[in-house]
Amino acid sequence: MFRNITIGQYVPGDSAIHKLDPRVKIIITFIFIIAIFFINKFSGYIFAMLYLWLVIRISKIPFSYVLKGLRPVIVILLLTVSLNMFFTPGGTVLYTLGPLKITSAGLKFAVFMGLRLIFLIIGTSLLTLTTSPISLTDGIEHILKPFSKIGVPAHELAMMMTIALRFIPTLIEEAEKIMKAQMARGADFESGNIVNRARGLVPLLVPLFISAFRRADELAIAMESRCYRGGHNRTRMKKLEVHTRDYAALFITGVIVVLIVWNRSWAW
């Protein structure tokens, strides 16, 4: 039941995209997201599409895998598209369905919004597909570090994420063990309506929480005895280094952004 939960959806690999500095990847993703919002006509999406196609090809991640990232948001996607389609006024009426009218402007806008969402999701999921949660954490810590002067707890956030990544598999294993033990005593986690099933989870969650707190307590003592005293004066074994490929990636992204912005003033 818990086995198929994966953290993030990282696909290990050694492509140039995988090897990019996580900081650079995070920044590029942000730039791409913002650029998407600058697109004001369909032709602009050609550049974004070209860019994503290039990234996917280099990263060697199968297209089907990338598209799978859309599945969890398909409902939101359909909802957005249909709302925009039915409730955007203007243009010629193409189709009437009772009180609902599909107008040419509505259709155009709906497709436009749909594309925007799809590009956003694919863009961000490419980040998590090609970056291990650990280097993602490192990247976030390094990006936030300059802001720690104004009170952003960069080190603490990164430490929390690290510990979460470390303990999620352990807690999943433990949950399975507790479940098996409860099932051996006749507990039923799989049948009944939703209320009964939720109630059935109580004997699973209570011991899990108790044990998680005990673990936290022991971990804190172990960390302290390994001289942990927060982020102050702490060094890191892994240094993040910016290579030529990182500059190349930034450059290509820059070109795409320039094209997208320039595209705004085109006639079509």
């Binding site: 949660p133 690290t162 470390r166 971990l219 960390m223 074994m237 892994k238």
Partner: peptide
């Protein structure tokens, strides 16, 4: 409960 990081060497 004393291993902190998600990778052995880290």
């Amino acid at each position: 409960n004393q291993i902190v990081a998600a990778i052995v060497e880290e």
